[in-house]
Every structure is written in C-alpha cells, then in structure tokens.
Computed example of a mutant assay.
Amino acid sequence: MPLYDFTCRVCGRTFEAMAAMDGGEEICVCGGSARRLVSVGRGYRADGDWLASVAAVAEKDSDKPHVRAFLAEPSRANYRRWIRGEGIRPLEDGESRRRATTPPAVSHEVLERFKARRSRV
C-alpha cells in the first residue's frame, strides 16, 4: 500500500497514512473523516527546466558571488540576482532580438522628397 497525505475535515490536521490506491478517505485521530490530498512526487521541481540551460551558459570559473550562488543553486531567485549582477535585462513580452532599421540612404531620400514637396507649396 502506498503512503498518502490526508487532511482532517474536522480538526484540520494533516497526516500521512498508508491506504489503498482507490480509497479516498481515512479516519483522523480526532475521529473525523480525512480526505486524501493531491501531492507531488520526488521528481517534481518547483523551478522551471529552463534554469538548467541558463546555468549552462553562466561563467563557470567566475568568482562573482551572484554567479557562484546561481551555479550552486539554480533557482528563480538566484536567476534574478544573476541577471541583475551581470547587467542583463530579459526581453519583455512582444520584444524581439531583431531591431527594425531603415537604411540611411532610404531615409535620406524620403527626407529630400519631403523637402522638395514643402518647397513647392
């Protein structure tokens, strides 16, 4: 029988108990009925999988404290400290890496046409 987490509906106590997989209720020490909680297994990690890819590009031989802390424990909090320490700003929603630029010759040509139209008026 597997071990599950339960919470009592009467006293609010949370406890572990062995129960059948198809059973959903247990009896608490106070005598009230307890419902089974949904819990996560050992493989669960609160931080995202992407943190490992960020840690892979961090400078491994750096002596900076924010880098050492991030490499020792790649969490979201340490990630924020790392990007602040490195002077990096993550992209906001809607931003892209490419910048739209107008070739200087085109913008000069447009400016000349504008000046020509203004002089005729």
Rank of each mutant, 00 (worst) to 15 (best):
C28T: 01
G32F: 03
T101K: 01
D61F: 13
S39W: 00
R81K: 09
R99G: 15
P2V: 03
L71M: 10
R36D: 00
Y79N: 01
G41W: 00
V121D: 08
G23A: 15
R42E: 10
H108Q: 10
E59W: 13
G85C: 02
R97F: 15
V67H: 03
R98S: 07
R76L: 13
L37Q: 02
C28Q: 05
V38P: 05
R117H: 10
V40I: 12
E59D: 13
G48P: 06
V38Q: 01
R35W: 13
Y4D: 05
G87Y: 08
I83L: 04
R84H: 14
E92M: 10
G43V: 07
A19H: 06
G87P: 05
V10M: 01
G85S: 06
L51P: 05
V67I: 14
P2A: 00
V110L: 15
G24R: 03
M18S: 11
P2I: 00
V106Y: 10
C11Q: 03
R76Q: 11
S53F: 12
D22M: 09
G87I: 05
V10Y: 09
A77H: 05
V110R: 11
P65K: 08
V57T: 10
R76T: 14
R68I: 15
F6K: 00
R117S: 10
R80A: 15
L111H: 14
A20L: 05
A52F: 06
R45H: 08
V38F: 02
P2N: 02
P74M: 02
Y79L: 12
A34T: 04
W50H: 12
L111C: 13
